[in-house]
């Protein structure tokens, strides 16, 4: 099972996306957990994650977060983020993880 963590400034706007990504995962039969948290909780929340995705508005935090974690830290596609396109986000995640 994959552990996917989404992060933005306060974990608020990514929490809108979480529901949609979960829905997409259910439809695709992809075995994973998906949660959203504020970016400054990266260490506590994402220690054992398989992948961390940052909202595009906090993309400047990528380097700092990556330094703390072993898993890949990538940026969510802007258009997919704005349109709350859970399917596209999940497809990107699967591609990145090679699933």
């Amino acid at each position: 099972m994959r552990k996917i963590i989404l992060m933005c400034n306060a974990g608020m706007s990514t929490s809108i996306l979480v529901g949609k990504v979960r829905e997409a995962a259910k439809n695709m039969g992809y075995d994973c957990t998906i949660d959203a948290y504020p970016v400054n909780e990266a260490e506590e929340r994402a220690k054992d994650a398989d992948i961390v995705l940052l909202g595009p508005q906090v993309r400047f935090e990528q380097k700092r977060i990556q330094a703390k974690l072993d898993c890949p830290v990538s940026i969510i596609d802007m258009a997919a983020y704005g349109m709350v396109n859970g399917k596209k986000v999940l497809e990107d995640i699967k591609k990145e993880l090679g699933d």
């Binding site: 933005c8 608020m12 706007s13 809108i16 909202g55 595009p56 508005q57 802007m78 258009a79 983020y81 704005g82 349109m83 709350v84």
Partner: peptide
């Protein structure tokens, strides 16, 4: 569609959907 999608988060002062979806960026 973007305005329908964004209006409820907007009421709670969250506007990333419209910022990146319209986009405003």
């Amino acid at each position: 569609s973007i305005s329908k999608l964004s209006v409820v988060p907007g009421i709670f002062n969250i506007n990333e959907p419209v910022i990146f979806g319209l986009p405003i960026v």
